[in-house]
């Protein structure tokens, strides 16, 4: 079985035995290890990717389900070498990163939120990140990072 989809704007294909999960396909044959496995059970959000703009736990999503769809991972955000996307820039500037293991998923979940709601209230940000666990930061600077990302995206548009 072969699955074809768009990964960060490029057509890719990968052969599957069957129910391989998107996370394992990304990290394995496709070599995209920026997406992390924190729990493998959809509880921690470290593996968050966007599929057609929506946030998904790649650890639970069979790769066969993304046939023909557009998958965005953390590797697909930076607009050019040496540059960062507004979300990445915001996390770097506002101190939303400590050990960094939750960061790719946290940034992808934040981006999915901001794509749907460019100016979320604090409570909306917290609600949107409820599936992304962080053990280092206590979330304060993560929430501020998302607010900053909203502002940077606003400036950019």
């Amino acid at each position: 079985m072969e699955v074809r989809f768009t990964l960060n704007g490029r057509e890719v294909s990968c052969s599957l035995v069957g129910s391989e999960l998107l996370l394992d396909v990304l990290r394995g044959p496709l070599g995209h290890r920026g997406t992390k496995e924190g729990c493998g059970k959809g509880e921690c959000g470290a593996c968050t990717v966007q599929v057609d703009g929506h946030p998904f736990n790649a650890c639970l999503l069979p790769a066969a389900e993304v046939e023909g769809r557009a998958v965005t991972t953390i590797e697909g955000l930076a607009p050019a070498p040496g540059e960062l996307s507004p979300e990445q820039q915001a996390f770097v500037e506002a101190g939303g990163i400590q050990c960094g293991f939750c960061t790719p998923g946290m940034i992808m979940a934040s981006k999915a939120l901001l794509d749907a709601d460019p100016d979320p209230a604090d409570a909306d940000i917290r609600h949107a990140l409820v599936g992304n666990l962080c053990r280092c930061t206590g979330y304060a600077q993560i929430i501020e990072s998302v607010r900053r990302a909203a502002a940077l995206r606003g400036e950019g548009s």
Partner: peptide, 9 residues
């Protein structure tokens, strides 16, 4: 229900 990621699936 759970999280936005879970609700997507």
């Amino acid at each position: 229900m759970a999280s936005p990621q879970i609700r997507s699936s």
